[in-house]
């Protein structure tokens, strides 16, 4: 076990443990979207879980830090909040904010983080961006809204069919990146339950069962 300081409070944690998880388990909330417990290598892609670490330059994402003795972590410095708010506003600018009609309303990852960071759900400075790509119209069980999706990739982490093969993927690139299914073969080996499990991993209800 290693002793570390989080916001000046001494915490004991396993050497080499994931700092984001250690923070969350000890009651220090850090905004995050792409992290799932038990992943071997964090994608570090949502860019929300910033903290500052003494003797390191500027904020770093806590999901990419492993615990070592003597680590001194601060979770709420102005630079940390600035980057977190900026990342959240960017995500919201590409998100179809229509909470009243969204199945994720009141349990949505973005709502939680916005409340915590005191950011309005419709930031004014940034214009709204929309993708022109379609969802998965031809999928028998799943519906997908690319303009709700935050591309955290959590669905891909849990999406494995019977033979361990994924039935969803990231497709395209850059701003146009979407979650996609492809080909009939992918469906035959997969049960309805497996599809819904994968939809449940979505923090913003971009992915859901068709009858949702």
């Amino acid at each position: 076990m290693a002793k570390i300081l989080i916001d000046k409070k001494e915490i004991e944690a396993k050497e080499g443990a994931n700092l984001l998880q250690v923070c969350l388990k000890n009651g220090f909330y850090i905004p995050n979207l792409c992290h799932l417990e038990g992943m071997d290598s964090p994608p570090a892609s949502c860019r929300l879980c910033f903290v500052e670490i003494e003797e390191e330059d500027g904020p770093v994402t806590s999901c990419s830090v492993t615990v070592r003795a003597g680590l001194k972590v601060t979770t709420d410095t102005p630079p940390v909040r600035r980057l977190q708010r900026s990342a959240l506003k960017l995500l919201l600018s590409a998100h179809d904010v229509d909470c009243a009609r969204c199945p994720a309303n009141k349990k949505c990852g973005l709502q939680t983080i916005a409340r915590f960071l005191k950011v309005g759900l419709k930031p004014k400075q940034l214009e709204q961006l929309r993708k022109e790509t379609e969802g998965m119209e031809d999928h028998p069980f799943l519906r997908y809204d690319p303009n709700r999706c935050v591309l955290c990739g959590r669905c891909l982490q849990v999406c494995h069919g019977k033979q361990g093969q994924p039935f969803l993927t990231f497709a395209k690139r850059g701003f146009d990146t979407v979650i996609a299914s492809y080909g009939e073969k992918d469906l035959s080996n997969t049960t309805y339950q497996e599809f819904t499990a994968c939809a449940q991993a979505c923090p913003v209800a971009a992915l859901g069962p068709k009858n949702d």
């Binding site: 892609s45 900026s86 960017l90 590409a94 850059g174 701003f175 990146t177």
Partner: peptide, 21 residues
């Protein structure tokens, strides 16, 4: 850069699109 962004992380994927716009 916006066209060549891999789309993985929030800042590059969405931020560069705003800069370009």
């Amino acid at each position: 850069t916006q066209k060549e962004s891999c789309g993985k992380c929030t800042f590059c994927r969405i931020g560069t699109r705003h800069l370009l716009n």
